[in-house]
Design a protein around this nucleic acid. Structure first.
Lengths: 225, 225
DNA sequence: GTCAATCTGCAAAGATTCTTCACAAATTCC
DNA sequence: GGAATTTGTGAAGAATCTTTGCAGATTGAC
């Protein structure tokens, strides 16, 4: 079962969307503003798709979309009013994935949701985003502000572990047994070397790594958000 | 339900086309320029047909058609103005599938769309296109700029898998279990051999394979677009 | 069965990453 | 402040991985 987050300032539209989607075994969450949507996304990890109205007071759909993209790659469908021309370039810039025009047929909505879920299923293979830093297991890529950072396998696994466990301290021993398949004994200094190389590469790309990957004296390393 | 992308610089014509098509349960997307059309095609996989006006400022219909053909085989109908002679040779060259002359009857438009959809449904036997590289499962053919490249079955399956999963890293083990039915143990180096042969054949034909099929050190291989 | 095409495996050479070491720098504790 | 401990750094050799050339094994067509 998939979870859909519906965002619209009009309660009537939220109810209508829910009504459409309920029979198809979707779990619907509602938000009446961009802000609420973002709060929900931040605490609730299991949202599979967002349907976002463009015309909203305070924070409009585009702005909301942009905000969401700062921390998540969840698929987003923009809801446009009849007559609004869809600005595709704008959409690309803000990171929207698809559009649907009000009023719409139930079938069209369903089709677009299904299509997007299918698409995102392929590309969303364990993907972490943090402050413009993007870690993608499937493609083995680490990017900062969309720029590729060349990292070695060990460095890649290291930063992945940290991003998946913010605030958590890892001892060198723990890192060795998690990332190194612990064949024989490997020196603690080796971890330090890899951490150093990782820090240097990120620093060179402008990412404020020293604010996030910190050394806990006498214990190990940890990532702080 | 089928999705149609309408491309015309005149908003009036876009609306008119939409009006014609809406009652027949088509999902219409609009683009006011060739550039927007291409962006839309790139993010939206589910476009079944494109209707493309020839006379447009900046990038005209022919140019747009040509650009689209670099990455997609979506059926394209060219919209020509009354009095323009249809240059069939030009059409073939740029990859258009059909023509319709303005002004047209609703019935004629419908008929041509239906005909083209019927035609493309039959010929679409798993066909991938990327930057002039064409992979056709049905005919077991790999072509670059329409020139046939002789590949062996393993090479064909390999490049097919990569084209179907761009950005995704495949380990040698994964490739062996996917493409080789892994009866017994097969050496990792064997994968390398096939990759090498594939690279060489494509390189010899002028395809910039080294920009697209890359080795991920310590992990495997991947295709990058 | 013969032949050609394809697949597989190997070893050497080349490239990249990993690990260690020695020492400098930093931190803690007394 | 000074000793003890921990962390950071540069360099270099070790280890690992990739590429390449080649040859034997296998397969399928005739």
């Amino acid at each position: 079962m998939k979870t859909i987050l519906l965002v619209d300032d009009e309660t009537r539209m939220l109810d209508l969307l829910c009504l459409y989607l309920a029979p198809y075994d979707f779990n619907c969450l509602k938000a009446e503003s961009g802000k609420k949507a973002i709060s929900l996304l931040e605490i609730e990890e299991a949202i599979d798709i967002v349907i976002l109205d463009i015309m909203m007071p305070d924070m409009d759909g585009w702005k909301t979309c942009q905000k969401i993209r700062e921390f998540s790659k969840v698929p987003i469908i923009m809801l446009t009013a009849m007559g609004e021309t869809v600005d595709v370039i704008k959409g690309l810039k803000y990171g929207a994935d698809d559009y649907i025009t009000k009023p719409f047929h139930e079938a069209e909505l369903l089709a677009r949701i299904e299509a997007l879920l299918r698409r995102s299923k392929n590309s969303n293979e364990k993907n972490l985003v943090f402050n413009g830093l993007e870690w993608n297991k499937g493609s083995f890529e680490l990017r900062y502000q969309n720029k590729l950072i060349q990292v070695t396998p060990k460095e890649f696994e290291l930063i992945g572990l940290f991003l998946k466990n913010p605030q958590k301290v890892f001892s060198r021993d723990h890192l060795l047994s998690t990332i190194w398949s612990q064949k024989f004994h490997i020196d603690d200094r080796t971890v330090d070397s890899h951490i150093r190389n990782l820090r240097e590469k990120l620093r060179n790309e402008g990412f404020p790594i020293d604010q996030h990957l910190s050394t806990v004296w006498g214990i190990g390393y940890k990532w702080v958000n």
